[in-house]
Write a protein that binds this DNA or RNA. Structure first.
Length: 429
DNA sequence: TCTGGGGTCCTAGGACCC
DNA sequence: TCTGGGGTCCTAGGACCC
């Protein structure tokens, strides 16, 4: 059966999450910050109307925040992740094929039949998510993923469509595309926009009609695919089976600059522990570890960044093994006298647990099994009592200059018993 | 003073092989 | 002085996404 795509996208997701438990903030400007309360990463419509740009460092818009009484939140990923799951669960109840594309978006496919009133169905879906989770979403429908992204944009921006816009069989497609700037097309970023503008391609419609050979040469096969999708030829299919990741990264900017090797060690051990947990959660192992440390791009004098890769003898998901490798990298990378601002590790060469090839010496490693049991116990305890309950040595120093700054974090309303919201009934005391 | 984090895919170029 | 032609694999870097 022929199918069409629908993109379900939460409106201003992080801001909507914060408002869910603070309904008095509806209609008021709200922003959510990146780690360390550095940049604006989400804005409510009211905040967008104040011309607070996406990605802007907080200190540059302090005056706007103060003048318009904008409500500011540190990021609270435990809350956002949990609400995301709830939205996706509602979708899965209604639809067999769901591709979770990001924390706040999912593609689904809808059958094409004459009787099928797609807009009406999508409106029901939207209402169900609002009712069950409290999350406002917009839905765009079209024959390709790229077009459904555009349809979603229209659904979100133009109030008369009530959050659902169908571009399928719409004889106004070109008229819609003519109003979309080319840099707002999915897959067209800053660099490509420059090249396209130089060739007088300014809108999605211009891009749809662009010369294929030139596109192929200038924007590679990726750009050529985008053009085909704009022409209604579906090249990007629905991926509803989750696959193992190709890499896992854990990196953080430090709350304060770090100069001391011991402090760096603490940060690295912490990040490796998080990455190891991610591996085990996904049931995979990695055989390549890359560590990087850097003074950061804004340090005028004394800049230093470097990274090192270690290939392990065997894929592993054991935190102590990974820590050993990471500290070995750190030892050779560290140079005294610099103010480090960020560090991170990347795990690659990822295979499913148990799929790895045994090496010649694996017979002589009876400790492996014990290690696994230890990791299972560790994960269980930390999942029940919080990530920092059990930690590897050197991470418990009371003074952690690298620790994240989060001054305006909302409670973990939905994932921590101690922080559940309390309902107060009027008239009771 | 203060500037996010986590991913994927593609291409070019080098090393190496026969 | 002249110096093949093909192929694979790996890595670094670029571009993009949310």
């Amino acid at each position: 059966m022929k199918k069409v795509f629908a993109l379900v996208d939460c409106n201003n997701f992080y801001c909507s999450c914060e408002r869910l438990f603070r309904p008095e903030l509806n209609g008021k400007p709200v922003v959510v910050l990146s780690n360390n309360d550095g940049c604006i990463v989400a804005r409510s419509n009211e905040a967008k109307a104040l011309d607070i740009p996406m990605g802007e460092p907080l200190f540059k818009v302090k005056h706007l925040i103060a003048r318009h009484n904008v409500h500011v939140f540190s990021s609270n990923y435990a809350l956002y992740g949990d609400l995301s799951h709830r939205v996706m669960d509602v979708l899965r109840q209604m639809e067999p094929d769901v591709e979770v594309y990001s924390i706040d978006e999912a593609f689904i496919s809808l059958p094409v039949t004459k009787e099928w009133d797609r807009v009406k169905y999508a409106a029901e879906l939207r209402e169900k998510i609002r009712k069950h989770v409290g999350m406002p979403v917009s839905i765009g429908i079209a024959t390709t993923k790229t077009l459904s992204k555009i349809a979603n944009r229209v659904a979100k921006k133009e109030a008369q469509f009530n959050g659902v816009f169908d571009l399928t069989g719409n004889n106004q497609i070109d008229q819609v595309l003519g109003k979309i700037e080319v840099n707002d097309v999915w897959g067209i970023g800053r660099r490509s926009t420059e090249k396209l503008n130089n060739r007088c391609i300014y809108t999605a419609l211009d891009l749809k009609r662009a010369d294929e050979t030139w596109i192929r040469k200038t924007l590679t096969v990726v750009g050529a695919r985008t053009v085909m999708e704009l022409n209604g030829i579906s090249c990007i299919s629905l991926e509803n089976a989750p696959s193992s990741p190709k890499s896992i990264i854990t990196s953080r900017s430090f709350g304060h600059p770090v100069t001391d090797l011991d402090d760096l060690r603490g940060a690295v051990i912490n990040y490796v522990s998080i990455a190891g947990e991610k591996l085990r959660k996904q049931g995979v192992e990695a055989d390549t570890l890359n560590l990087f440390i850097t003074t950061g791009p804004f340090d005028e004098q004394a800049r230093y960044s470097n990274n090192q890769t270690i290939t392990l003898h065997q894929p592993t998901s054991s935190t102590p093994e990974l820590i050993t490798a990471a500290l070995q990298c750190l030892k050779s990378l560290y140079k005294p006298g610099y103010r480090y601002r960020k560090a991170g590790i990347m795990l690659a060469g990822i295979v499913k647990q148990g799929w790895k090839q045994q090496d010649l010496f694996s017979l002589f490693r009876p400790a492996e099994k014990e290690d696994k049991q230890l990791m299972t116990a560790l994960d269980r305890i930390n999942s029940k009592w919080g990530r920092s309950t059990l930690q590897y040595g050197m991470t418990t120093a009371t003074d952690k200059p690298w620790a994240m700054q989060q001054r305006r974090k909302s409670p973990a309303y939905t994932t921590n018993w101690q922080e559940l919201p309390v309902a107060k009934a009027a008239g009771l005391s």
